[in-house]
C-alpha cells in the first residue's frame, strides 16, 4: 500500500466508512501483527493489542497527518501499544526494547578490535552453515532488538533513519544491530 492509498483510506474512515479501515487491515495486518507479537510474545495478547491498534486507528483517523510515511507512523503506534500492554499487565519489558543504547552495543560500536573479531567469527561460522535450519529457528538466535530491526526493515520497508525514529535510538545503533543480525542470519544461509 502506498502512502497515497493509505491517506485515501484514512479519508474514507474520517467520513465514517469502514471500508477504509478494512483495506488498511488487510494490507497491514502481517506488518502490525509481527511488530506486536515480537514484543508481547504471547499470541493471545498479540491478537488483543493488534485489534486495539486497528480500533484506535479508526478512532484517531482525524489526527493523521500525511507526509511523513505511514509505515513508520503505524509502527510507532503499534510498538507503543505493545509496550504499554506489557506495562499494564505487569510483565517485564525486555531491556532490548529500551530506547537507550545498551552498553554492549556501545562497546562494540567503538571497538575496532571487536568489529574484526565479529568478522572473523562470522567467517568461521559460515563453515558451519546449517541449511536445514528454518527461518524461525534462525531468528531465534537474534536478540529481540535485532529481530525488531529486521522486521521493520523487511515488513515495513523502512529506512535506517525511520527505524531509528520509531525505536528512538541512534541511527548508528540501528545499522550496527542490523548488520549484526544479517551476519547471524547469513550463517544459516539467508541472504
Amino acid at each position: 500500500m502506498t502512502d497515497r492509498r493509505f491517506e485515501a483510506c484514512i479519508r474514507k474512515m474520517v467520513k465514517g466508512s469502514r471500508e477504509g479501515l478494512r483495506e488498511i487491515y488487510e494490507d497491514c495486518l502481517p506488518y502490525i501483527f509481527s511488530i506486536v507479537s515480537g514484543i508481547v510474545k504471547n499470541r493471545e495478547d498479540a491478537e488483543d493489542v493488534t485489534s486495539e491498534f486497528f480500533i484506535r486507528l479508526w478512532n484517531t483517523a482525524e489526527r493523521y497527518r500525511p507526509g511523513s510515511g505511514y509505515k513508520a507512523y503505524i509502527a510507532t503506534i503499534a510498538r507503543n501499544m505493545a509496550i504499554d500492554h506489557l506495562r499494564k499487565t505487569g510483565r517485564e519489558i525486555p531491556a532490548d526494547f529500551s530506547a537507550e543504547e545498551s552498553k554492549e552495543d556501545t562497546a562494540y560500536r567503538f571497538s575496532e578490535a571487536a568489529v574484526r573479531a565479529v568478522a572473523e567469527q562470522a567467517e568461521s561460522f559460515e563453515d558451519e552453515l546449517v541449511e536445514s535450519l528454518a527461518l524461525k529457528e534462525a531468528l531465534d538466535r537474534l536478540k529481540p532488538s535485532e529481530r525488531e530491526i529486521i522486521n521493520l526493515k523487511i515488513m515495513g520497508d523502512l529506512t535506517f533513519r525511520e527505524i531509528s525514529e520509531v525505536l528512538q535510538i541512534p541511527m548508528g545503533t540501528v545499522t550496527w544491530r542490523y548488520r549484526s543480525a544479517v551476519e547471524k542470519l547469513r550463517r544459516f544461509g539467508y541472504e
Binding site: R18, L21, R22, Y25, L29, P30, Y31, F33, S34, R43, E47, T50, S51, F54, I55, W58, L135, K136, I150, N151, I154, M155, V182, L185, G189, Y190, E191
Partner: peptide, 27 residues
C-alpha cells in the same frame, strides 16, 4: 542461499489471526 526477505514475508503472512469481526464489532 535463501532469500531472507522473501521467506520472512512468507512467514509473517502465514498463520495470521482473523481479527476483522472482532475489530468491526468494537468500532
Amino acid at each position: 542461499s535463501k532469500s531472507l526477505e522473501k521467506e520472512y514475508r512468507k512467514m509473517a503472512s502465514s498463520d495470521l489471526p482473523d481479527l476483522w469481526n472482532r475489530i468491526s464489532d468494537a468500532l
